[in-house]
């Protein structure tokens, strides 16, 4: 594989974390336009851990995930009481606040005679963990996909658990969930925290893959994409957002004549899907039908043998 393919695949992997993050919140019935904030916070926190404090990469990713997760839970505790429309706007406001604060923050320390750390609008350069360990892009890509697989398995397990069922109850009808004894705000804060962790992991990986981050990358464009992936791929299963990512980064990136017009095609696609399939390609009903079909086929197989 040449470096271009590795970079595209790695980008797919890293973007998938934000997509899953936005998906987790969509599952509980709230729409966040601001998951890029936690991606950014994770990137900066993880970068600071390895480049400034010289911690190992796993500690960097852990710190990135924790910082993003805690921040997301905190913000969620403040804003998840709001009605849907207001909550969505508040996520947008918070994400822009984070981006503007990162444009201002300058904290640099001297490492090996060089100044390292966030430098306001210039961004955070020299997150050189990969170079120092002599790790190739391909190897890092494997790390990305290993973590993505781990996260996906965790999400699929949650989906099968009571917690997953609770998240779907909130997403389907929050008043009914409340009437059945669920603390709606509490569980949504939990979901927001988990979503923050996912975005934070993605950001931590991104910071180390590109070796530098700048606040401009965490703009609303990233937020729109993260949200749209789940809406394209479908809210019926955690594979939905990944399908969304694959369609966008894989298909639209690959088709030549779309290049340069990608946002026009992408925007139109999402707008049409919202009209005709508001819960995406793999929505709950299709997932249910697919599962039923698999089960029948499994039964027939068992009966035949």
């Amino acid at each position: 594989m040449d470096d271009y393919v590795i970079t595209v695949l790695s980008n797919i992997g890293m973007i998938s974390f934000v997509a899953l993050s936005a998906y987790l919140l969509l599952l509980t019935g709230v729409i966040s336009f601001g998951q890029q904030a936690y991606f950014g916070l994770g990137a900066y926190a993880a970068g600071a851990a390895t480049a400034m404090l010289l911690l190992p990469i796993w500690a960097g990713i852990l710190i990135g995930a924790c910082v993003a997760g805690l921040m997301a839970a905190l913000v969620g505790a403040l804003t998840l009481r709001l009605r849907g429309l207001y909550f969505s706007i508040s996520t947008l406001a918070f994400a822009e606040m984070v981006r503007l604060v990162l444009l201002i923050v300058e904290v640099q320390v001297e490492v090996d005679g060089e100044l390292v750390g966030p430098a306001g609008a210039e961004g955070f350069h020299d997150i050189r963990w990969m170079f120092e360990r002599d790790i190739s892009l391909g190897e890092f890509m494997l790390l990305i996909y290993a973590l993505l697989a781990l996260v996906l398995v965790a999400l699929l397990l949650i989906e099968r658990s009571r917690l997953g069922s609770i998240f779907r109850m909130l997403g389907s009808d929050d008043l009914l969930a409340d009437m059945q004894g669920l603390n709606v705000v509490g569980y949504r804060v939990l979901a927001a925290g988990l979503a923050g962790v996912l975005a934070g992991i993605g950001g931590a990986l991104y910071a180390h893959f590109t070796t530098y981050v700048e606040p401009q990358f965490f703009n609303v464009m990233l937020g729109v994409h993260a949200l749209a992936y789940g809406l394209i791929g479908g809210l019926g299963t955690a594979f939905g957002p990944l399908i969304g990512v694959a369609i966008d980064v894989g298909f639209l990136e690959a088709v030549r004549f779309i290049q340069g017009y990608r946002m026009i095609v992408f925007g139109g696609l999402v707008a049409l899907l919202l009209i005709f399939m508001p819960r995406g390609l793999l929505d709950e009903e299709r997932v249910h039908r697919l599962k039923a079909r698999f089960r029948r086929r499994g039964d027939a197989h068992a009966a035949g043998s």
Partner: peptide
């Protein structure tokens, strides 16, 4: 595209739709 075509009670879907169309118009 974002308001007439989307069911009246789906205020959030309209908002999301107008959000992606924002990006489309900008491009």
């Amino acid at each position: 595209l974002c308001f007439r075509a989307i069911r009246r009670d789906a205020a959030l879907a309209s908002m999301v739709s107008s959000f992606v169309i924002w990006m489309q118009l900008e491009e």
